[in-house]
């Protein structure tokens, strides 16, 4: 893991360069956040094995999302998925954590360029100063209610700033795909899954070869 700090140092140098070169618009504040977040030491490491405060955990190892990112999605998913989540508390926590795990697994296949974009977005949302000024979310994410999270999503969705619309799309698309795409949630969309007659006939669905 020794190489991780070095990698973020390199990223922050790149952010600084593009910030100095462009100096306007999105690169300005996203770049600034990248620098500030790194300077203030809040650029975290991937969370690895994660155990939620409620004690729910799994064997999954987070390879991209940090502890702060997990808290961020923990606050956003009750708004993004809302009534699609189970009502019973333990099931609900399990569905939320499972979805965050699939978001992480998906991002790992995104490649360096889009990972860098998402890192900037998550740092902007997690860094106190920009959480308040850009996202206009006052409490830290662990204390944000679903109603406050929904209001934040509405602001970014209806904003006249394309970059914020893009942030809204990134957050909701990651979440919606990871949630509704999973077999455990297919019942919500009424999708019956691949036809049983086909899976029974096809060799790749028979005993693992």
């Amino acid at each position: 893991m020794a190489e991780l700090p070095a990698r973020s140092d390199r990223l922050s140098t790149m952010d600084r360069r593009s910030f100095l070169r462009t100096g306007v618009g999105g690169t300005l504040f996203l770049g600034t956040v990248g620098i500030t977040a790194n300077l203030s030491g809040c650029a975290g490491k991937p969370a690895g094995r994660y155990e939620a405060a409620t004690g729910i955990s799994s064997d999954y190892r987070f390879g991209f999302l940090t502890h702060d990112d997990i808290l961020l999605f923990g606050a956003l998913l009750p708004a993004i998925i809302g009534p699609g989540l189970p009502q019973q508390a333990a099931d609900r926590q399990q569905a939320i954590l499972g979805t965050i795990e699939r978001i992480d697994a998906g991002i790992l296949q995104f490649g360096p360029a889009n990972q860098k974009e998402l890192r900037r977005l998550f740092d902007l949302l997690n860094f106190g100063l920009t959480r308040v000024t850009v996202a206009r979310v006052w409490p830290d994410w662990a204390s944000v209610s679903p109603a406050q999270a929904g209001a934040f999503l509405d602001r970014w969705r209806s904003s006249r700033i394309g970059l914020l619309n893009n942030g809204y799309i990134a957050l909701t698309k990651l979440s919606n795909v990871a949630f509704y795409g999973h077999p455990a949630q297919w019942h919500l969309s009424g999708y019956p899954g691949p036809p049983a007659w086909a899976t029974q006939a096809l060799p790749q669905f028979q005993n693992a070869s």
């Binding site: 708004a79 009534p83 929904g150 909701t172 795409g181």
Partner: peptide, 22 residues
């Protein structure tokens, strides 16, 4: 379901209701 959830740009109850009609 994943494709539909990714292209319909909503969230919350509205999204659940739309996808529920898949």
């Amino acid at each position: 379901p994943a494709m539909a959830a990714g292209i319909v740009p909503g969230y919350g109850e509205d999204q659940r209701d739309t996808l529920g009609k898949l």
